[in-house]
């Protein structure tokens, strides 16, 4: 991206299209044509009906590259209406280039309002985080998923993995966790810790940190997961049991940031990320930028998921 600064002044989708003499008028509402939206909604309904089960769908070509959130984007575009307020976060950050572009694209193709405020949003598309602020039953969280298959690391064949899900044949997954404990003294999976959904399917919660895993359990919000490259949609409906895989004597633990506080907001008990500070020091800030901004502004935020 860095090389194109002089002859490509616009970083927004609208800017790029305008530059090339085009506009959005020839496109369907929300970019996808009606048949595509219907197909995605059907897959979504099926996913909601079978929590944690990966439903195949005909992933469309999108105006962004696969691997940059095309699965999440298709879910968002199939659901969004012009009355919605849309928020997009990339690792918790509303201001990353990718988040900004996705948010603008959705807004411009639908007339939906853009927002950074977690509480205000009706649809939130996310890469790798769940907001700290509790989401409600009138909101939907849409995850961008790179690898939807939690068994990928123990079984390369998609067909065999599907058979394992169908028969709830998960002993090899448990074996991998046992071996992990033998070798490393703990279950080492950090981001994307495998979970059991509704006591039936093992699911990859997209690579969210362990910190966010407990929020998936018995939430008020609908969670939708879209993997564009892998052409899979899955879901955790509201009030569904979602449990991290664990042994009775090696219990699941979230990340600890003992003693550290967010440098923007002073908040503790929040998922922190490290960035280089001045003079070789490190700077710890909440990865959820909207949460940090709200706390810094003295706004009270409910984070008891």
């Amino acid at each position: 991206m860095a090389s194109a600064t002089t002859d490509r002044p616009s970083s927004s989708v609208r800017g790029l299209i305008a530059e090339r003499g085009g506009d959005f008028s020839g496109y369907s509402f929300a970019f996808l044509d009606d048949m595509a939206k219907r197909e995605i909604r059907r897959a979504t309904l099926k996913a909601v009906a079978i929590p944690g089960h990966q439903v195949p769908f005909g992933s469309r070509e999108m105006p962004i590259a696969r691997g940059w959130g095309t699965g999440g984007l298709q879910l968002t575009l199939s659901l969004v209406g012009s009355e919605d307020r849309v928020k997009v976060i990339d690792q918790g950050d509303d201001a990353s280039v990718n988040a900004v572009n996705l948010r603008r694209l959705v807004a411009q193709m639908t007339g939906a309002e853009e927002t950074l405020d977690t509480a205000e949003a009706t649809l939130i598309q996310t890469r790798h985080r769940i907001p700290e602020e509790v989401m409600r039953d009138d909101q939907i969280l849409i995850f961008q998923v790179p690898i939807p298959e939690p068994l990928r690391f123990i079984e390369r064949s998609v067909a065999v993995a599907r058979g394992m899900h169908a028969e709830q044949d998960y002993s090899r997954m448990w074996l991998a966790l046992y071996e992990d404990i033998v070798r490393r003294g703990e279950i080492s999976a950090g981001a994307g810790y495998p979970v059991m959904v509704n006591s039936r399917f093992i699911m990859a919660p997209s690579p969210i940190p362990r910190w966010d895993i407990p929020k998936l359990n018995q939430a008020d919000t609908l969670f939708l997961f879209g993997a564009g490259r892998e052409k899979r949609i899955y879901a955790v409906p509201p009030h569904t049991d979602v449990r991290p895989l664990e042994f009775e004597d090696y219990a699941f633990k979230t990340e600890e940031f003992d003693g550290l506080a967010c440098e923007v907001s002073g908040a503790t008990d929040v998922y922190l990320v490290e960035s280089p500070g001045e003079n070789g020091t490190s700077r710890w800030t909440a990865s959820d930028t909207n949460y940090a901004d709200k706390v810094a502004a003295g706004i009270e935020v409910n984070k008891q998921w």
Partner: peptide, 14 residues
């Protein structure tokens, strides 16, 4: 050996 025990729902490593 654990594999057969895990298949039988053993969930304590010790």
């Amino acid at each position: 050996i654990a594999e057969r025990l895990l298949a039988a729902d053993w969930r304590r490593v010790d």
